[in-house]
Simulated assay, not measured.
Amino acid sequence: MAKTILITGASSGIGAASARAAAQAGWNVALLARSEDKLKALADEIGDAALAIACDVTDRDALENSVSQTVSHFGGLDAVFANAGKGGAQSGVENGDPADWHDMVHLNILGVLYTAHATLPHLRKTKGQFIVTGSKVGREHFKGSIYGATKWFVHGFAGNLAEEMREWNGRCTVISPGMVDTPFFDEAKPDKLQPKNVADAVVFALSQPDTSCVREIHLMPND
Protein backbone atom coordinates (compact mmCIF):
# COMPACT_ATOMS: atom_id res chain seq x y z
CA MET A 1 0.00 0.00 0.00
CA ALA A 2 1.28 3.48 -0.87
CA LYS A 3 2.53 5.66 1.96
CA THR A 4 0.86 8.99 2.73
CA ILE A 5 2.33 12.43 3.27
CA LEU A 6 0.45 15.51 4.47
CA ILE A 7 1.75 18.81 3.10
CA THR A 8 0.81 22.24 4.46
CA GLY A 9 1.14 25.33 2.29
CA ALA A 10 0.53 23.00 -0.64
CA SER A 11 -1.27 25.34 -3.03
CA SER A 12 1.79 26.87 -4.71
CA GLY A 13 5.57 27.13 -4.74
CA ILE A 14 7.56 24.63 -2.70
CA GLY A 15 4.46 22.90 -1.33
CA ALA A 16 2.88 22.27 -4.73
CA ALA A 17 6.18 21.14 -6.24
CA SER A 18 6.74 18.76 -3.33
CA ALA A 19 3.25 17.31 -3.75
CA ARG A 20 3.93 16.60 -7.41
CA ALA A 21 7.33 15.07 -6.65
CA ALA A 22 6.01 12.90 -3.81
CA ALA A 23 3.11 11.66 -5.93
CA GLN A 24 5.51 10.84 -8.74
CA ALA A 25 7.58 8.86 -6.22
CA GLY A 26 4.50 6.80 -5.36
CA TRP A 27 3.14 8.61 -2.31
CA ASN A 28 -0.42 9.58 -1.53
CA VAL A 29 -0.56 13.31 -0.80
CA ALA A 30 -2.94 15.26 1.43
CA LEU A 31 -2.85 18.88 0.29
CA LEU A 32 -3.55 21.55 2.92
CA ALA A 33 -3.74 25.30 2.35
CA ARG A 34 -6.24 28.14 2.63
CA SER A 35 -6.67 28.51 -1.15
CA GLU A 36 -9.32 25.93 -1.98
CA ASP A 37 -9.43 26.62 -5.73
CA LYS A 38 -5.67 26.17 -6.16
CA LEU A 39 -5.72 23.00 -4.06
CA LYS A 40 -8.50 21.46 -6.11
CA ALA A 41 -6.70 22.26 -9.36
CA LEU A 42 -3.52 20.63 -8.04
CA ALA A 43 -5.43 17.59 -6.79
CA ASP A 44 -7.10 17.22 -10.19
CA GLU A 45 -3.67 17.38 -11.82
CA ILE A 46 -2.20 14.69 -9.54
CA GLY A 47 -5.23 12.40 -9.62
CA ASP A 48 -6.50 9.77 -7.20
CA ALA A 49 -3.36 9.92 -5.06
CA ALA A 50 -4.26 13.46 -3.93
CA LEU A 51 -6.73 14.77 -1.36
CA ALA A 52 -7.39 18.53 -1.21
CA ILE A 53 -8.40 19.98 2.17
CA ALA A 54 -8.85 23.72 2.66
CA CYS A 55 -7.33 24.50 6.05
CA ASP A 56 -5.75 27.35 7.99
CA VAL A 57 -3.02 25.66 10.05
CA THR A 58 -3.27 28.33 12.74
CA ASP A 59 -6.81 27.05 13.45
CA ARG A 60 -6.19 24.05 15.71
CA ASP A 61 -9.65 22.54 15.34
CA ALA A 62 -9.55 22.81 11.55
CA LEU A 63 -6.09 21.27 11.50
CA GLU A 64 -7.11 18.37 13.75
CA ASN A 65 -10.10 17.71 11.49
CA SER A 66 -7.89 17.82 8.39
CA VAL A 67 -5.48 15.29 9.86
CA SER A 68 -8.36 12.99 10.81
CA GLN A 69 -9.81 13.32 7.32
CA THR A 70 -6.43 12.39 5.81
CA VAL A 71 -6.02 9.30 7.99
CA SER A 72 -9.60 8.21 7.31
CA HIS A 73 -9.22 8.67 3.55
CA PHE A 74 -5.81 7.04 3.07
CA GLY A 75 -5.71 4.68 6.06
CA GLY A 76 -2.76 6.21 7.88
CA LEU A 77 -0.07 8.87 7.90
CA ASP A 78 3.60 8.21 7.20
CA ALA A 79 5.09 11.68 6.76
CA VAL A 80 4.33 15.36 7.16
CA PHE A 81 5.85 18.36 5.40
CA ALA A 82 5.12 21.47 7.48
CA ASN A 83 5.72 24.01 4.75
CA ALA A 84 3.14 26.74 5.38
CA GLY A 85 4.69 30.09 6.21
CA LYS A 86 4.82 33.76 5.37
CA GLY A 87 7.35 36.53 5.17
CA GLY A 88 7.06 40.09 6.38
CA ALA A 89 8.27 43.58 5.63
CA GLN A 90 11.98 43.85 6.37
CA SER A 91 11.63 47.06 8.38
CA GLY A 92 13.65 45.96 11.36
CA VAL A 93 12.38 46.05 14.91
CA GLU A 94 12.10 49.76 15.70
CA ASN A 95 10.21 50.56 12.49
CA GLY A 96 8.41 47.23 12.16
CA ASP A 97 4.69 46.56 12.34
CA PRO A 98 3.74 44.44 15.39
CA ALA A 99 0.48 43.41 13.70
CA ASP A 100 2.51 41.94 10.83
CA TRP A 101 4.75 40.15 13.34
CA HIS A 102 1.70 38.66 15.04
CA ASP A 103 0.39 36.97 11.88
CA MET A 104 3.84 35.82 10.80
CA VAL A 105 4.77 34.37 14.19
CA HIS A 106 1.44 32.58 14.44
CA LEU A 107 1.90 30.92 11.05
CA ASN A 108 5.67 30.34 11.01
CA ILE A 109 5.97 29.17 14.62
CA LEU A 110 2.60 28.18 16.06
CA GLY A 111 1.46 26.71 12.73
CA VAL A 112 4.46 24.38 12.79
CA LEU A 113 3.88 23.46 16.43
CA TYR A 114 0.18 22.81 15.87
CA THR A 115 0.98 20.66 12.83
CA ALA A 116 3.46 18.58 14.82
CA HIS A 117 1.09 18.23 17.77
CA ALA A 118 -1.78 17.08 15.56
CA THR A 119 0.22 14.59 13.50
CA LEU A 120 2.77 13.04 15.86
CA PRO A 121 0.35 10.46 17.35
CA HIS A 122 -0.25 9.16 13.82
CA LEU A 123 3.42 9.30 12.85
CA ARG A 124 4.32 7.33 15.98
CA LYS A 125 2.15 4.46 14.71
CA THR A 126 4.06 4.30 11.41
CA LYS A 127 7.49 5.34 12.75
CA GLY A 128 7.08 8.21 10.33
CA GLN A 129 8.86 11.42 9.44
CA PHE A 130 8.25 15.12 10.11
CA ILE A 131 9.79 17.54 7.60
CA VAL A 132 9.69 21.30 8.03
CA THR A 133 10.73 24.25 5.87
CA GLY A 134 13.53 26.24 7.41
CA SER A 135 15.68 28.80 5.61
CA LYS A 136 19.15 30.17 5.09
CA VAL A 137 18.00 33.06 7.29
CA GLY A 138 17.44 30.56 10.09
CA ARG A 139 21.16 29.76 10.03
CA GLU A 140 22.65 33.25 9.72
CA HIS A 141 21.96 36.66 11.26
CA PHE A 142 20.23 39.33 9.16
CA LYS A 143 19.81 42.86 10.49
CA GLY A 144 16.45 43.27 12.25
CA SER A 145 14.80 40.30 10.49
CA ILE A 146 11.80 39.06 12.47
CA TYR A 147 11.11 36.56 9.69
CA GLY A 148 14.65 35.24 10.12
CA ALA A 149 14.05 34.88 13.85
CA THR A 150 11.00 32.70 13.19
CA LYS A 151 13.17 30.44 11.05
CA TRP A 152 15.78 30.26 13.82
CA PHE A 153 12.97 28.84 15.93
CA VAL A 154 12.14 26.31 13.21
CA HIS A 155 15.73 25.08 13.02
CA GLY A 156 16.02 24.75 16.79
CA PHE A 157 12.64 23.07 17.07
CA ALA A 158 13.47 20.60 14.30
CA GLY A 159 16.60 19.45 16.11
CA ASN A 160 14.74 19.05 19.39
CA LEU A 161 11.87 17.22 17.71
CA ALA A 162 14.32 14.88 15.97
CA GLU A 163 15.61 13.82 19.39
CA GLU A 164 12.05 13.30 20.67
CA MET A 165 11.00 11.27 17.64
CA ARG A 166 14.18 9.22 17.79
CA GLU A 167 12.82 7.55 20.94
CA TRP A 168 10.32 5.66 18.79
CA ASN A 169 12.40 5.44 15.58
CA GLY A 170 10.74 8.46 13.96
CA ARG A 171 12.68 11.07 12.04
CA CYS A 172 12.66 14.85 11.66
CA THR A 173 14.30 16.83 8.86
CA VAL A 174 14.58 20.57 8.29
CA ILE A 175 14.88 21.70 4.66
CA SER A 176 16.92 24.90 4.56
CA PRO A 177 16.90 26.71 1.20
CA GLY A 178 18.40 30.00 0.15
CA MET A 179 16.38 32.20 -2.20
CA VAL A 180 13.73 30.23 -4.10
CA ASP A 181 11.82 31.46 -7.16
CA THR A 182 8.30 31.39 -5.67
CA PRO A 183 5.34 33.79 -5.27
CA PHE A 184 6.99 34.75 -1.95
CA PHE A 185 8.77 37.43 -4.03
CA ASP A 186 7.12 40.17 -6.09
CA GLU A 187 9.44 39.56 -9.05
CA ALA A 188 10.50 36.26 -10.65
CA LYS A 189 13.93 34.91 -9.66
CA PRO A 190 14.73 32.51 -12.52
CA ASP A 191 18.44 32.32 -11.64
CA LYS A 192 17.72 31.21 -8.05
CA LEU A 193 16.62 27.87 -6.63
CA GLN A 194 13.47 26.49 -8.21
CA PRO A 195 10.64 24.91 -6.20
CA LYS A 196 11.44 21.54 -7.78
CA ASN A 197 14.98 21.73 -6.35
CA VAL A 198 13.51 21.90 -2.86
CA ALA A 199 10.91 19.24 -3.67
CA ASP A 200 13.70 16.89 -4.76
CA ALA A 201 15.37 17.43 -1.37
CA VAL A 202 12.10 16.54 0.37
CA VAL A 203 11.81 13.30 -1.62
CA PHE A 204 15.46 12.51 -0.90
CA ALA A 205 14.83 12.83 2.83
CA LEU A 206 11.75 10.61 2.52
CA SER A 207 13.68 7.97 0.61
CA GLN A 208 16.27 7.27 3.32
CA PRO A 209 16.40 3.79 4.87
CA ASP A 210 15.23 3.24 8.44
CA THR A 211 18.82 3.29 9.67
CA SER A 212 19.39 6.87 8.45
CA CYS A 213 17.92 10.22 9.48
CA VAL A 214 18.91 13.24 7.41
CA ARG A 215 18.53 15.98 10.03
CA GLU A 216 19.06 18.94 7.68
CA ILE A 217 19.35 19.62 3.96
CA HIS A 218 20.76 23.06 3.11
CA LEU A 219 20.44 24.24 -0.49
CA MET A 220 21.81 27.40 -2.05
CA PRO A 221 21.48 28.91 -5.56
CA ASN A 222 24.50 28.11 -7.68
CA ASP A 223 24.90 31.57 -9.23
Rank of each mutant, 00 (worst) to 15 (best):
T4V: 08
I5R: 03
L6F: 11
L6D: 10
I7D: 00
S11E: 10
G15P: 01
S18R: 01
A19Q: 07
R20V: 14
A22F: 07
A25G: 15
G26F: 05
V29L: 05
L32E: 13
S35L: 08
D37E: 10
D37S: 12
L39D: 13
K40E: 14
A41L: 15
D44Q: 15
E45N: 05
I46V: 10
G47T: 04
A49L: 07
A50Q: 02
C55E: 08
C55F: 06
D56V: 02
V57D: 11
T58D: 14
D59L: 02
R60K: 13
D61K: 11
D61T: 13
D61A: 13
L63N: 03
N65L: 14
N65Q: 15
V67R: 13
Q69H: 15
Q69K: 15
H73E: 07
F74E: 04
G76A: 15
A79D: 01
A79N: 02
A79F: 02
F81C: 02
N83M: 01
K86P: 07
G88Y: 06
V93I: 11
D97R: 07
P98D: 04
A99C: 04
A99E: 14
H102F: 11
M104C: 02
H106V: 09
H106N: 15
L107W: 10
G111Q: 05
H117V: 04
A118D: 02
L123T: 09
K125G: 06
T126Y: 08
F130V: 06
F130M: 07
I131W: 01
T133L: 13
T133N: 13
T133A: 11
E140Q: 12
G144Q: 09
G144S: 07
G144N: 06
I146E: 00
I146A: 02
I146K: 02
Y147D: 03
G148D: 03
A149V: 06
W152M: 05
F153R: 06
V154H: 08
V154L: 06
H155F: 04
F157P: 01
A158N: 05
A158M: 05
G159D: 05
G159Q: 12
A162I: 06
N169H: 13
N169W: 11
V174F: 07
I175N: 07
M179S: 09
M179C: 03
T182C: 00
T182G: 00
F185L: 00
A188I: 01
K189G: 06
P190T: 08
D191W: 09
K192Q: 15
Q194N: 05
P195A: 07
P195I: 00
K196D: 11
K196Y: 07
V198P: 04
V198I: 14
V198Q: 06
A199Y: 11
A201L: 04
V203Y: 06
F204W: 09
S207T: 03
P209V: 04
D210I: 06
T211G: 07
T211Y: 11
C213E: 01
C213H: 01
I217Q: 00
L219S: 00
M220Y: 12
P221A: 01
D223A: 12
